[in-house]
């Protein structure tokens, strides 16, 4: 069982479209995990049936029982987050400000405050059009993307891949360089970096690769919209060579990416020409690299 994670650092580089294409190419042998829980879009291309869904709880949230509250103001005094206020003579908690530290509950003399698990979103297991299974999630508004939901999605996908004897787990990774992307990378066998030749594309690629290096994971890179800025594209290629990252493909700027999306399709289903060829050979290359890695161990 091999885990391939696709990340980009920066948004809008085509990461999800490319992951979805690999899911189609991988067919029923690839379990998909959408770990981009902040902007979970992959389901739009995969025709999921939301076969199973469950609430997801993360962190805590204080609640005040008005019946036991003696309005002593101790809770409001210790709260450093300004989450406790008085509304029509009652002490209330603002859920968007509460950090769940539990300090208020500890100082309440009448035990009127309790900490409850905070509903942070929902996660799903779906059958998808590739004949395989996808694990995905949706983070609630104002929820804390701590990486825990990412870990949950990944872990469920691993269990499914193990039980169903699938060889590949494809992970659409989280953006940025924080906790969620660390969770996406943890335990991966190969990382595909998707970037674009722009000032910010290169900047974010370098930042996110620092993380990949820490995990000592072998990486490959796809430069999307590579012809938009040939000079920047060459700069990226230079960086890849320096860091010993496999340069998997240059994809031209192509509006078929969007046209495919509006049809609910991946680019490899929609386009029959160069992009499909490029992505197919990238996918074969990735599989090869992942398998070879195994032999070296």
């Amino acid at each position: 069982m091999k885990e391939i994670v696709i990340i980009s650092g920066k948004g809008g580089t085509g990461k999800t479209s490319i992951t979805a294409s690999f899911a189609v190419l991988g067919g029923n042998n690839a379990v998909v995990a959408d770990c981009d829980v902040d902007a979970a879009d992959m389901h739009l291309l995969m025709q999921p049936d939301f076969d199973f869904s469950e609430d997801f709880y993360s962190g805590e949230l204080a609640t005040i029982d008005a019946n036991n509250c003696i309005r002593c103001n101790k809770c409001a005094k210790v709260c450093r987050f300004g989450a406790i206020s008085i509304r029509s003579m009652q002490y209330v908690i603002d859920p968007l400000s509460c950090e769940g530290c539990g300090y208020c509950a500890r100082v309440c003399p009448t035990e009127a405050i309790t900490n409850k698990n905070r509903l942070a979103g929902k996660w799903y297991i779906s059958n998808i059009k590739t004949g395989s299974i996808m694990v995905h999630a949706r983070l609630g508004i104002g929820a804390d993307n701590s990486g825990k939901l990412v870990a949950k999605v990944k872990n469920e996908a691993r269990d499914i891949a193990f039980e169903e004897r699938k060889d590949i787990i494809l992970v659409d990774g989280s953006p940025g360089v924080g906790c969620p992307v660390v969770s996406s990378l943890s335990g991966a066998n190969f990382v595909v970096l998707v970037t674009e030749p722009s000032v910010s594309g290169l900047h974010d690629l370098k930042r996110v690769y620092e993380l990949v290096k820490k995990f000592k994971i072998k990486a490959g890179c796809i430069i999307n919209k590579s012809d938009v800025n040939p000079k920047k594209r060459d700069e990226i290629v230079g960086f890849l060579a320096e860091e010993n990252i496999v340069h998997l493909a240059d994809l031209p700027y192509d509006e078929n990416f969007t046209s495919a999306m509006t049809q609910g399709q991946t680019i490899v289903e929609y386009d029959q020409n160069s992009i499909k060829t490029l992505l197919t050979s990238s996918w074969e290359r990735i599989k090869q690299l992942v398998i070879n890695q195994n032999h070296n161990r």
């Binding site: 902040d38 902007a39 804390d144 993307n145």
Partner: peptide, 9 residues
């Protein structure tokens, strides 16, 4: 920041 989680709020 992008998204709908606490930093955006």
């Amino acid at each position: 920041p992008p998204g709908t989680s606490c930093p955006v709020i």
